[in-house]
């Protein structure tokens, strides 16, 4: 079954305290080359048939992400 992947990340101007906590932990583990972490969400949708790009964008922007604070990236299956 084809899959659509949707990645949701906080907009750059919205601070991400969870990402900062992960960054702090990485530093304590000695991974000092990592200088920034942004935490997001990754959705994998099983789809039947071929939903339109418009419909998938609507799904991503009206439910999976809150456009006030988050950006979405759609990864469509190979046609």
């Amino acid at each position: 079954m084809p899959q659509v992947v949707v990645d949701v990340v906080l907009k750059p101007e919205i601070s991400d305290p969870q990402g900062q906590a992960v960054l702090g932990a990485l530093g304590r583990l000695g991974h000092t080359q990592v200088t920034g972490v942004r935490q997001g969400k990754h959705f994998v949708l099983d789809v039947e048939g071929t939903p339109s790009r418009e419909e998938l964008e609507q799904i991503a922007e009206t439910l999976l992400a809150n456009p006030v604070i988050e950006d979405v990236e759609l990864h469509l299956p190979e046609a």
Binding site: L10, P17, V68, I69
Partner: peptide, 17 residues
């Protein structure tokens, strides 16, 4: 109400977690 679009902005994880 913010998620429904009746009020502006959003509520996110507390800064101190």
């Amino acid at each position: 109400l913010c998620e429904a679009g009746l009020l502006p902005g959003a509520l996110t994880r507390n800064s101190h977690l």
